[in-house]
Amino acid sequence: MAARVPTLNQKSLYDTTPLPESIPKVKELGTSSAPLLSASFFIGARCKDYNDDYMQCKNENPGRGEFECLKEGRRVTRCARSVIDDINKSCLDQFRAHWQCLDNNNHQLWQCRPAEWKLNKCVFENLGLEKVVPDQPKNSTPVHLRKTQIYAHNPILRGEPFIPEKTQSQ
């Protein structure tokens, strides 16, 4: 098996032709999955309108969204990139600690709560973005603010959950 030369490999399928000049350029995110997961709720907090615009455009152009929604797509990418850039500028250490923890723990958010709290605190203080999981039942603590995570390797966590003061954000 291994001696057979692969006849259809991806190497010769590269197509590096750039987009035509008529379509504006945008810098891609260039981020791997763990940093994206770590920053996802901040991206959602800042870019919700752009994201909704884009998804609406895709919805209204079934089958043609790839061409019709390029403009909205560029906005989405620019916004998400701005969030990543801002976090990199002001909270690089906490960000790095959190996404490396995620990378080491199979992308399980509940294994990395202490790092996440530090990141949330820094991001809220510097960028004003807050992590909110929607549809939280009224009588329960949001899961990312609980001090015990049943399924974590160390269920009882050290450190304090970061809860932003409501008076500031409203």
Partner: peptide, 26 residues
């Protein structure tokens, strides 16, 4: 709760991922 958190993190990311993919396809 974990599942809902994960789902929403994905929902926030999907437009960015899809936009990149669409641009590449175009």
């Amino acid at each position: 709760e974990y599942a809902r958190e994960k789902m929403w993190s994905r929902i926030h990311l999907i437009p960015a991922l899809q936009a990149e993919e669409d641009r590449d396809q175009v």
